[in-house]
Amino acid sequence: MTLFLLDGLIVVGLVTLAYQAVSSRSLFRGIIHFVVFGLTMALAWARVGAPDLAMAEAAIGAGLTGALMLVAYRRLVEGRSDSPADPAPAQSRLALPIAIGSGLLVGVIGLSALFSEVEPAQAGQAVLSELQQVDLGNPITAVLLLYRGLDTLLEVAVLLTAFLAARAVAGADGGEGSATTPAPETPMVGALLAVVIPLTVLVAIHLLRAGSYEPGGAFQGGAVLAGAGVLLILSGRIAATPVAGPLIRMGLLAGLVSFMLIGLVPLLKGSPLLALPGLWAVYFIETAMMLSIAITLILLFAGGGGLKRGRNG
C-alpha cells in the first residue's frame, strides 16, 4: 500500500514536472524543473530495480545536464535582455496535435505491453549462465562490454562527436568569455573543495571498480568525476582555453582509441571483432572511458577546447 502510494506520487510528480519544465513561462524555472524531473526520474529507476540507470540519470540527467543548461542560460539569455522575465513564446499550432499523437503512442505501447503474451526470456538466462565463466559479478557491465561492445563503443564515439560539434558551433571564441562569475574570495569555498574533491575522486574510482560486481561503471564514474571538474571551474580553480594541450587531447581520445585497438586485436587471431581478451581489458577500457567521459563533459561545461590553471588555481 505504502509502496503503491510512493509509486503513484512518483508518476504524478514526473508528469507534472515534465509539463512544468516545457511549459514554464520563465526559462530559468523550466531548467530548475528539468533538474528536479531528472532526480525524480532517478527515483523511478531505483523503484523499478535499475540502480545503474538511477545513478546515471541522477549524475548525468539531473546534475551535469542541469549545469550545462544553467551555463547556457547565463551565456545566451541572461546577458541579452534587460528584463528578467522571458518573453512568452507563442504556442505553435502543431503543439496540440503533437501532444495528442505522443499521448496516443504512449497509450498504445503501454496497452500492447499490458496485453501481449510475454515469451519467457531466453537470452538473459543464456547470458547469465555464460557469465559464470567470466569473473564479472555485475551482469550489466558484463553485457555492456562483452555482448554489446559495439553499442558501448558507439556511445563513446557519440560523446566525442557531440564535443567536436559543440566546438565547431562555438567557434574560435569559445573559452575566452568565461562562463562563470568571478569566484568569491571566501575561505569556505577552499574548505569545501579540500573535502569534496578528494571524496569525489574516491567515489568515482569506487564506482568504476564496483562496476564489475555491483551497480556502477565508467559512465557513472565519469559523470561524478566531471562533477568535481564543474566545481573546480565554478570556483575559478581551472579555466577554459581555446586550444587543448596534448594531455587533454590524449584524455579525450583515450576511451575510444583504447577500446578500438583492444577490440581490433582479436581479428588478427581470427576471433570476432571486439571479443575482449580478458578481464584486464575490461578494466583498462573502463578506466580509459571514464577519463574520456569526464574530460569531455568538463570541456562541454567550460565551453572551451582545453583547460588551464584558473585565476584562483
Binding site: P184, T186, L192
Partner: peptide, 17 residues
C-alpha cells in the same frame, strides 16, 4: 556530514551574493 558541508557553503555563498 557531507550534506551539512554542502548546505553550509552554498547557503553562505547565496547569502554573500
Amino acid at each position: 556530514l557531507v550534506g551539512l558541508l554542502a548546505a553550509t557553503v552554498s547557503a553562505h555563498l547565496i547569502a554573500r551574493h
